[in-house]
């Protein structure tokens, strides 16, 4: 799971080494990556929103 989160984070930044990537794509199912990606996107939006809220106050 940690590996999935790490990979998704790497994807957000657009940086990942070929070795890790090969490892990710060994796994058969893309679903953990998709679900984690969606969740992380929501988390990301919430983080930016709270930064905006904090900055506005």
């Amino acid at each position: 799971m940690l590996q999935v989160i790490k990979s998704v984070l790497a994807a957000f930044l657009g940086v990942q080494s070929e070795k890790n990537r090969q490892q990710d794509f060994q796994s058969r199912s893309p679903w953990p990556f998709i679900v984690t990606g969606v969740v992380m996107t929501l988390v990301f939006v919430l983080v930016v929103a709270s930064v905006a809220r904090w900055a506005a106050s």
Binding site: L13, G14, V15, Q16, S17, E18
Partner: peptide, 11 residues
């Protein structure tokens, strides 16, 4: 065709 250091820097 890749270089993790460079990519991290330019991100």
């Amino acid at each position: 065709h890749e270089n993790t250091t460079v990519e991290v820097i330019w991100t």
